[in-house]
């Protein structure tokens, strides 16, 4: 279980996260909803060790993550699909997957499992990641993260700019991971997609987690979506 308690994060002198607390459990999808600049991406980066946590704690299965460098957070089993994919564009598909496999995972076996989820990648192993289509790049970003065999997966807008068929594929993969016991924290702007796969939703506003509730409750409270995200259900 991942427990975040009262964390504060800053970009320079600007405070982005303010005493934010959350919990993510194994086998659930926790979605973070909020307007642009609310602090959702910063929260994922703070968990990942890419933004320094000035106050508060992040504990994962009894291990403190808040003072670890990103490399050690990844080694403890936290996978990350960053916003905009951040693939190693000059490396091939196979090399991008290899990077994911270096830290954890069981080599070819893990890679084959990841490729089985996204078979289109298997045909493009020698192709440079930067030359893939947007959908294929997103598949590769997901597959690369899965090569770490994560127990917590952080997904930052994985459905951004994708075709409906690709979105439903990613949704299937996230549901599959949930069934496998992985805790997924998903930042997503597409409310319909969030409501279809989330177990719980946390509304983030001005760097604070305002309300966290089960997705069924969110469906019954369109006013919350209107208030925190600016859209109806």
């Amino acid at each position: 279980m991942l427990t975040i308690q009262n964390i504060d994060c800053f970009y320079g002198d600007v405070q982005v996260l303010r005493s934010l607390s959350l919990e993510a459990h194994g086998g659930e999808v926790l979605c973070l909803l909020g307007r642009n600049g609310a602090g959702k991406t910063t929260l994922l980066k703070a968990i990942m060790g890419l933004v320094r946590v000035r106050a508060g704690t992040i504990i994962f299965d009894g291990q403190a993550l808040h003072n670890l460098p990103a490399s050690e957070v990844a080694r403890s089993g936290v996978g990350y699909v960053p916003q905009g994919r951040r693939l190693f564009a000059e490396l091939t598909v196979a090399e991008n997957l290899e990077i994911g496999l270096m830290t954890r995972g069981h080599g070819v076996e893990t890679r084959d499992r990841a490729l089985a989820l996204f078979p289109a990648l298997g045909e493009r192993l020698r192709q440079r990641a930067g030359t893939l289509s947007g959908g294929e790049q997103q598949m590769l970003a997901m597959a690369r993260a899965l090569c770490l065999e994560p127990t917590v997966l952080l997904l930052d807008e994985p459905m951004e700019g994708l075709m409906p068929a690709m979105i439903s594929r990613i949704r299937e993969v996230v549901v599959g991971l949930k069934e496998a016991g992985v805790a997924t924290i998903l930042v997503e702007q597409r409310v319909d997609a969030v409501l279809s796969i989330a177990d719980r939703v946390s509304f983030i506003e001005n760097g604070r987690s305002r309300e966290t509730m089960r997705v069924e409750e969110v469906r019954e409270r369109p006013d919350l979506l209107q208030h925190y995200v600016g859209v109806g259900a």
């Binding site: 990942m48 060790g49 890419l50 460098p69 990103a70 490399s71 050690e72 957070v73 990844a74 080694r75 990350y80 960053p82 951040r86 190693f88 564009a89 000059e90 490396l91 090399e95 290899e98 990077i99 994911g100 270096m102 830290t103 954890r104 690369r144 770490l148």
Partner: peptide
Amino acid sequence: TKIGLIMRATQYDRETAQAFGIRV
């Protein structure tokens, strides 16, 4: 080599390399 791959990944994107366990 694997070392070369790590070096190239770090060259292209230090932050993402760290997020994949590379001790930059």
